[in-house]
């Protein structure tokens, strides 16, 4: 079972590469590069250090926006979940946030804030906060009334309630919100970098695009996607496995 976990995704990737190569050979078009060309382009950006440098710049921007979005979402989400009036008031903001395309946030932030750290931070925060807020607000509603009575009976302090009741209930919702939010944040940050910034993965994509280097565009895309997958499955998945360990302990 463990072996199939690695072998089957690997089989898919190999088949994808073979299919691509067949397509590239039959089309014989410079706009559809061979697997070998994409590979050597990937090797070039990895070996000259530019990939790591630019990815770190992009990740830093996402992290900054993420911190802001997380703080705001936690406060607003808990308030929405606990108070009907706050929820009714803030609901349109969340809905607008969810429906406005990330592309629009990226454009507006570049127009308003120009080439600055504010642009990327605000754009990422704006695309991350709505799904995170919604997820937290829904999670707060699932906090068990019966366990809240237990907290009252044993006179638990606010800190103990947060630790024993609120956070354990919210973990799955937080992780889910972070997951959806991050998948949106990646798209927005690349757009912001394409439109208005002079560093980062999006900027490099734009440069390769301008010089009609399709192999370069694909190499940057593949590399970036790989980093995202590692973050998603490795980091967030690992966090999830840790936080929900109690569920998977075998029954006696």
């Amino acid at each position: 079972m463990q072996l199939s976990l690695i072998l089957l995704p690997a089989l898919f990737l190999v088949l994808l590469a073979i299919g691509w190569e067949l397509m590239a050979r039959s089309l014989a078009n410079p706009l559809v590069p061979h697997v070998g060309e994409i590979g050597s382009e990937l090797a070039r950006i990895l070996s000259d250090g530019s990939f790591v440098r630019q990815v770190l710049v992009t990740l830093g921007r996402v992290a900054l926006g993420f911190v802001f979005a997380f703080a705001v979402s936690l406060a607003v989400g808990i308030a929405m979940g606990r108070n009907r009036y706050v929820r009714q008031f803030a609901e349109p903001a969340v809905l607008i946030g969810l429906t406005v395309p990330g592309l629009v946030w990226a454009l507006l932030c570049v127009i308003w804030f120009g080439i600055s750290l504010t642009t990327s931070t605000v754009a990422v925060a704006l695309s991350l906060a709505p799904p995170l807020t919604l997820s937290i607000a829904q999670g707060v509603k699932t906090v068990s009334a019966e366990l809240q009575e237990i907290a009252a009976v044993y006179q638990l302090s606010q800190r103990a309630r947060l630790r024993f009741l609120w956070l354990p209930t919210l973990y799955p919702f937080l992780l889910n919100g972070i997951r959806i939010g991050l998948s949106m944040a990646w798209k927005v940050i690349v757009l912001v970098e394409i439109f208005g910034l002079s560093s980062g993965v999006g900027y490099r994509l734009n440069v390769e695009y301008s010089s009609m280097n399709v192999a370069g565009v694909l190499a940057w895309t593949i590399g970036f996607a790989a980093i995202m997958a590692v973050l998603e499955y490795g980091f967030i998945g690992g966090l999830e496995r840790r936080l929900t360990r109690w569920r998977r302990v075998a029954s006696v």
Binding site: E146, L147, E149, I150, V153, F164, L165, P168, W246
Partner: peptide
Amino acid sequence: RGIVFQEHRLFPWL
């Protein structure tokens, strides 16, 4: 005043 309910009301993650 201790209280025991029909449901055990233990924290599932503890």
